[in-house]
Simulated assay, not measured.
Amino acid sequence: MTRNRDHLLAEAVRLREGGRREEARQRLLALCEQFPTDPEVAYQTAWVHDALGLEAEAVPHYVRAVEGGAGSGLSPDDRRGALLGLGSTYRVLGRYPEAVVTLGDAVAEFPDDAALKTFLAMALYNTGRAHDAMEILLTVLASTSQDPDIVSYRPAIEHYAKDLDATE
Results as ranks from 00 to 15, higher is better:
residue 116 L to G: 03
residue 24 A to T: 09
residue 140 V to K: 01
residue 16 R to G: 02
residue 11 E to V: 00
residue 144 T to V: 06
residue 21 R to I: 05
residue 91 R to P: 07
residue 16 R to A: 12
residue 19 G to C: 05
residue 45 T to A: 15
residue 47 W to N: 09
residue 155 P to F: 02
residue 161 A to H: 00
residue 159 H to G: 09
residue 112 D to V: 06
residue 23 E to H: 07
residue 22 E to W: 14
residue 161 A to M: 00
residue 88 S to P: 06
residue 168 E to V: 13
residue 64 R to T: 12
residue 36 P to Q: 03
residue 168 E to C: 09
residue 96 Y to H: 15
residue 96 Y to T: 15
residue 95 R to A: 12
residue 67 E to C: 08
residue 68 G to L: 06
residue 162 K to N: 08
residue 123 A to D: 04
residue 7 H to V: 08
residue 98 E to K: 13
residue 115 A to D: 11
residue 24 A to E: 05
residue 133 A to D: 02
residue 110 F to C: 01
residue 102 T to G: 07
residue 52 L to I: 07
residue 133 A to C: 04
residue 148 P to S: 02
residue 84 L to E: 10
residue 96 Y to N: 13
residue 166 A to I: 01
residue 163 D to E: 05
residue 140 V to R: 00
residue 47 W to S: 12
residue 99 A to M: 10
residue 17 E to A: 11
residue 12 A to R: 03
residue 31 L to E: 07
residue 76 P to Q: 06
residue 87 G to W: 11
residue 30 A to H: 11
residue 83 L to Q: 12
residue 149 D to R: 15
residue 85 G to C: 08
residue 164 L to P: 01
residue 25 R to L: 13
residue 45 T to G: 06
residue 71 G to C: 05
residue 4 N to R: 15
residue 30 A to S: 13
residue 77 D to P: 08
residue 28 L to G: 12
residue 163 D to P: 01
residue 38 D to K: 05
residue 89 T to C: 14
residue 88 S to I: 09
residue 100 V to F: 04
residue 131 H to V: 11
residue 165 D to N: 14
residue 106 A to T: 04
residue 36 P to N: 06
residue 160 Y to T: 03
residue 57 E to S: 07
residue 95 R to C: 12
residue 29 L to A: 12
residue 82 A to F: 05
residue 17 E to P: 03
residue 41 V to H: 07
residue 139 T to L: 00
residue 163 D to Y: 02
residue 141 L to A: 00
residue 115 A to K: 13
residue 66 V to I: 14
residue 117 K to I: 00
residue 131 H to K: 13
residue 146 Q to L: 10
residue 32 C to K: 14
residue 16 R to T: 06
residue 155 P to K: 04
residue 30 A to I: 07
residue 13 V to T: 02
residue 168 E to P: 01
residue 40 E to C: 07
residue 50 D to W: 05
residue 115 A to E: 13
residue 30 A to M: 08
residue 106 A to N: 04
residue 141 L to V: 01
residue 71 G to Q: 09
residue 92 V to F: 11
residue 42 A to H: 13
residue 96 Y to V: 15
residue 11 E to Y: 10
residue 103 L to K: 08
residue 39 P to K: 14
residue 149 D to P: 03
residue 109 E to R: 11
residue 160 Y to E: 00
residue 165 D to T: 14
residue 161 A to S: 01
